[in-house]
């Protein structure tokens, strides 16, 4: 058949089969793939492999393959479960506070008023500063001897003597969460502002003509329209809170007692203070898996609607 002759002529070599477009795509993507393979994919797989060994750096010659023992040990490790519950509490406090404050900030910045631009520049400041500087700042604010929190509350007569804020088991997590929230609110607010701005103005006009009050307009137009953006922000902030480390390192080192002993701190202690890399790897792997599962779940359940 004449057809097949042409067929042969058009498919001469493998290089031809994958045409110019494919070849340039491969060249353009090769660097990024190389980088991500070596700094993201390989480490994750490697830590999975490591998690099957009893690996104490203090005993470099005795590192047996122990199957899932690192994982099964976690089940009976009380401190591990404490750290999980601390992480959950910290995440819940932080994310709900961020949700409320960021929403208010976004609503405010969505209004037209003098000084709006200055204000939106100001709120970028917490976002920009390093977490370590943020931690140092709040450590100083919470300071039991000379801190601003004690000073202000004392001058306003809320307390009659200076308090040891971070040393109080019940207050530690909320106080660290406060420092976290302060730094995360700007980003969350900016993202929410984007979804607010995307609401078409004639929707509000139509609602006004229909006789809706300010409050009704907020409930029936603003909130539903913001839902996708809102969910996105919540997902992102949840991820950030679950893995957060810097504040715990500087403010409390997991203390007092185990009051702020969160998972990321636990992994750090296990790996770099107890030098048991095997179980550290097992826990990091679980954390990574949990993060994947969480984001997959969010994208599956919410993604369709976004």
């Amino acid at each position: 058949m004449a057809n097949t002759a042409i067929h042969k002529a058009t498919r001469r070599s493998l290089l031809d089969r994958y045409g110019y477009e494919e070849r340039s795509a491969v060249l353009f993507l090769a660097p990024v793939m190389l980088v991500l393979m070596s700094v993201a994919v390989f480490p994750i797989l490697y830590s999975f492999y490591l998690s099957f060994f009893r690996m104490k750096l203090t005993r470099p010659n005795n590192q047996p393959f122990i199957w899932f023992e690192n994982y099964s040990d976690l089940l009976t490790n009380e401190l591990f479960w404490v750290s999980v519950s601390r992480t959950v509490v910290f995440t819940l406090i932080s994310v709900s506070a961020i949700a409320v404050i960021a929403l208010l900030v976004a609503l405010l910045l969505n209004q037209e008023f003098k000084g709006r631009r200055v204000l939106s520049t100001i709120i970028l400041i917490p976002w920009a500063i390093p977490y370590v500087a943020n931690a140092l700042m709040w450590k100083w604010i919470y300071d039991s001897g000379y801190g601003a929190l004690n000073g202000a509350l004392y001058q306003l007569d809320f307390i009659d003597k200076y308090m040891v804020w971070l040393g109080d088991q019940d207050k530690t997590l909320p106080l660290i969460a406060n420092a976290f929230v302060w730094k995360e609110v700007p980003l969350a607010a900016i993202l929410l502002l984007v979804s607010l701005k995307a609401i078409p103005a004639d929707l509000y006009q139509a609602a006004r003509v229909d006789g809706a009050t300010v409050w009704q307009r907020f409930i029936h137009i603003t909130l539903p329209a913001m839902k996708p953006g809102f969910m996105l922000v919540m997902i992102y902030e949840t991820m950030m809170a679950i893995r957060h480390f810097d504040l715990f390192f500087i403010l409390t080192e997991g203390g007092p007692g185990d009051a702020s002993h969160v998972l990321s701190w636990h992994i750090y202690v296990e790996t770099f203070r107890n030098l048991s890399f095997g179980s550290g790897a097992a826990m990091s792997y679980l954390l990574a898996l949990a993060t994947f599962a969480l984001s997959y779940f969010f994208i599956r359940t919410l993604g369709r609607r976004i």
Binding site: L29, V32, M33, L36, V39, A40, V41, F42, P43, I44, Y46, S47, L50, M239, I242, R243, F245, S264, I267, Y268, T271, F277, G280, A281, S284, Y285, L287, A288, T291, F292, S295
Partner: peptide
């Protein structure tokens, strides 16, 4: 697929990379 791949690598927590990174 390549876009998804890059998105997934974005989700990996940094603390999960610490142990393998350190050893390497």
């Amino acid at each position: 697929a390549s876009m998804y791949f890059i998105l997934i690598t974005r989700v990996i927590p940094d603390i999960a990379l610490v142990v393998p990174f350190f050893l390497v």
